[in-house]
Write a protein that binds this DNA or RNA. Structure first.
Length: 652
RNA sequence: GCUACUGUGGCUCAGAGGUAGAGCAGCGCACUCGUAAUGCGCAGGUCGUGAGUUCGAUUCUCACCAGUAGCUCCA
């Protein structure tokens, strides 16, 4: 008999060869019913797996990540089975569980449409009702290849072909459907009670644009219908915060067909928010020893050739002129590096000058592919809080830490510190042609960066192939309302461009050396950061960033003079304030002001005019009653001064 | 760039092979109002752009432009 350690340290004896499912059953029928997968000695396994040595076993349910994963993975198989039943000629690609659900990639004979999803969903429900037991079997590689080629599954054939010759290939079978799969899976289709297909999209086979585009069906699954409904509701709620919709409603930005894709126009409200952010960033950077530059928006191709952008980034640049015909070709800048490097090179530097921290509120132009543009998040022209720190190797650590500290301060000020994830972006050692510099330098730089990140106690993930062409990056990622992750802030250590660009300093011993460059942004690019702020706060910006901080609403025309006087006083104190003098009812004006997420509403009528007060309604506390104008002014000024954050806006 | 979808007055959306409606917003008038929509009236659209099919197209076809989700790429 084997000694099996269960959850909570309980040890029970089982015969060798017992399946985990039977172990779960012996604990309780309920557990067996809810079991989705398991961990044997900490390793994610299938319920069908058997125990052969003393070990620890924990049964995973939908409440565990691993269990949820298996559950949704099974849902994706049921989706594939439904598709095969309805559209027999369809080839299957892959169908994993993902963070909030699952997807399956198909190669349909005839493209399907949104309407087909309803049909497929009905078939899925049928399969679930059929309560098909799910069985696993394994085959030697050659037999597996024979099986999938008999099925006509050329994608599966390709996947198996990439596995080692001696590999045992596992399959899962449910009723009339068999799929190549590593598992784990549920024991039957009947558990997948609440499934919904969410969207239809294209996806390249094996993630490469050189390959065929397949049809991807996204869906999600829960154990209970009520949980599914809750999830759908949350998704709908999140979409209401979509910056691309809300940003337009709040008159922060707009776009125009005749201006072009990826070229949003910041309207007065949006421009004001960006201006406030820029002033804040420039002042803070000055405090931290940055020097300001203002460099040209374009340069001759020669500059980009020297920096390497011409070789590595030309497709992403707007080139002005025709290289074949014109003697001189210019390009709009996609990055600020070579410009600030040129400033560095305009004078001789001693080791005593270093570090030099250049900062610039820098407008950049990138010719993104037409399908990439999205609201304010992905655009063709944007303005970034750009900066390059030129330092010696022995200063790298302090400078890097200084940069991270500045970023941390920015994130905290915006209230985003808990909404971001840190990603250590490394080069792709299997495709070195995309990068400058040799592999030794890359590995060394990456080791240095990893050590710095660990020293700083940053909780980060590592990602291959995400580096810049000149060095590894620390990327700070933010998820938009659709769950899509984008980089808002990045820091890059660059050992290669200084040499390429011939940047030098004279060291103590009189020798010329190449400095190290840290490329960094402190708050990211303003358009994208604005987008994230809109979504984070649902448009209800903290007072210091609100385009309009106060609305003064006279109850009727009779009190317009007093309202005017209040507006004047507030403006004189530097508060952003407007009066609403339309002859509308007070409820109507309040509704509009709230809709615009204005943090403070001052209602003024007979009583207020008599007493020199205002009736305050704040976004945070609702109706606050009459207040002394001077006191409430001081409070709002204080709130703005502190850059206070209250996540306070409630829709109803 | 790729896949699918979408494009009707400022916004949200109806509609149909015989050149268009609703609500909100706007404007005018009345109301002078106490904390999330006062009433009445008026005006506003060559139905994204261009070409084709047709006696006739905004509705069908094609191309282009723009948007949405995803893929690829990226701050």
């Amino acid at each position: 008999m084997l000694k099996i350690t269960l959850k909570g340290g309980i040890v029970k004896e089982f015969a060798a060869g017992t399946t985990v499912y039977d172990i779960a059953k012996s604990i309780s029928e309920g557990l067996a019913r809810n079991a989705c997968a398991c961990e044997i000695d900490g390793k994610l396994c299938d319920l069908r797996d058997t125990v052969h040595t003393d070990c620890s076993v924990s049964v995973l349910t939908f409440d565990d990540e691993g269990g949820k994963h298996a559950f949704r993975h099974t849902a994706s198989h049921i989706l594939a089975q439904a598709v095969r039943r309805l559209y027999p000629g369809t080839r299957l690609a892959i169908g994993p569980a993902i963070e909030d659900g699952f997807y399956y990639d198909f190669d349909f004979e005839k493209p399907i449409t949104q309407d087909d999803l309803d049909k497929i969903e009905k078939e899925i429900q049928k399969i679930v009702k059929e309560d098909l037991p799910i069985e696993r079997f394994t085959l030697p590689r050659q037999d597996a290849l024979d099986l999938v080629s008999k099925q006509g599954e050329s994608c599966k054939f390709e996947l198996i072909s990439d596995l080692p010759v001696d590999a045992e290939i596992s399959f899962y079978k449910q009723g009339d459907f068999t799929d190549l799969c590593a598992g784990p899976h549920l024991m039957s289709t009947k558990y997948v009670k609440a499934v919904k297909l969410l969207s239809l999209a294209g996806a390249y086979w094996r993630g490469s644009e050189k390959n065929k585009m397949l049809s991807r069906i996204y869906g999600t699954a829960f154990t209970k219908q009520s949980e599914l409904e809750e999830y759908i509701k949350q998704r709908e709620e999140a979409k209401k915060r979509d910056h691309n919709k809300l940003g337009r409603e709040l008159k922060l930005f707009t776009t125009s067909d005749i201006i072009g894709q990826g070229l949003p126009l910041l309207m007065p409200n949006g421009a004001r928010v960006v201006q406030l952010l820029q002033r804040f960033v420039e002042d803070e950077e000055e405090r931290r020893g940055y020097v300001l530059t203002k460099t040209p928006f374009m340069a001759k191709s020669a500059l980009y050739m020297a920096s390497g952008h011409w070789q590595h980034y030309k497709d992403g640049m707007f080139v002005l002129g025709d290289e074949e015909k014109d003697e001189e070709v210019f390009a709009l800048r996609p990055m600020t590096c070579p410009f600030q490097f040129t400033i560095y090179n305009s004078e001789q530097h001693s080791y005593r000058d270093l570090p030099i921290r250049y900062g610039e509120t820098s407008t950049l132009f990138r010719n993104e592919a037409s399908g990439e543009m999205h609201g304010l998040i992905r655009v063709r022209q944007f303005t970034i809080s750009e900066g390059h720190l030129v330092c010696m190797k022995e200063q790298l650590e302090d400078e890097f830490k200084g940069v991270v500290s500045l970023i941390d301060y920015m994130l905290r000020t915006l209230g985003l510190e808990n909404d971001v994830k840190y990603r250590f972006s490394k080069w792709d050692p299997n495709d070195t042609s995309k990068y400058e510099g040799d592999s030794e330098t890359w590995e060394e730089t990456q080791d240095i960066m990893r050590k710095l990140l660990n020293d700083l106690g940053i909780n980060f993930t590592e990602a291959d192939g995400e580096a810049a062409f000149y060095g590894p990056k620390l990327d700070i990622q933010f998820k938009n309302v659709h769950g899509k992750e984008d980089t808002i802030i990045t820091v890059q250590i660059d050992f290669s461009l200084a040499k390429k660009f011939d940047m030098t300093y004279i060291d103590k011993d009189g020798s010329k050396k190449n400095p190290i460059v840290i490329h960094r942004t402190s708050i990211g690019c303003y358009e994208r950061t604005l987008a994230m702020l809109i979504e984070k706060y649902g448009g209800a910006f903290p007072v210091w960033l609100a385009p309009q901080q106060i609305a003064v609403l006279p109850i009727s025309d009779k009190y317009a003079d007093y309202a005017e006087e209040v507006v004047k006083k507030l403006k004189a104190r530097g508060l952003r304030c407007e009066g609403d003098f339309r002859s509308e009812k007070i409820g109507y004006k309040i509704r509009e002001a709230r809709g615009m997420r204005i943090p403070y509403i001052f209602v003024v009528g007979e009583k207020e005019a008599e007493n020199g007060t205002v009736a305050v309604r704040s976004r945070r506390l609702g109706e606050e009653g009459p207040k002394n104008l001077e006191e409430i002014t001081a409070r709002i000024l204080e709130e703005a001064e502190q850059r206070a954050i209250f996540e306070d806006f409630k829709e109803n």
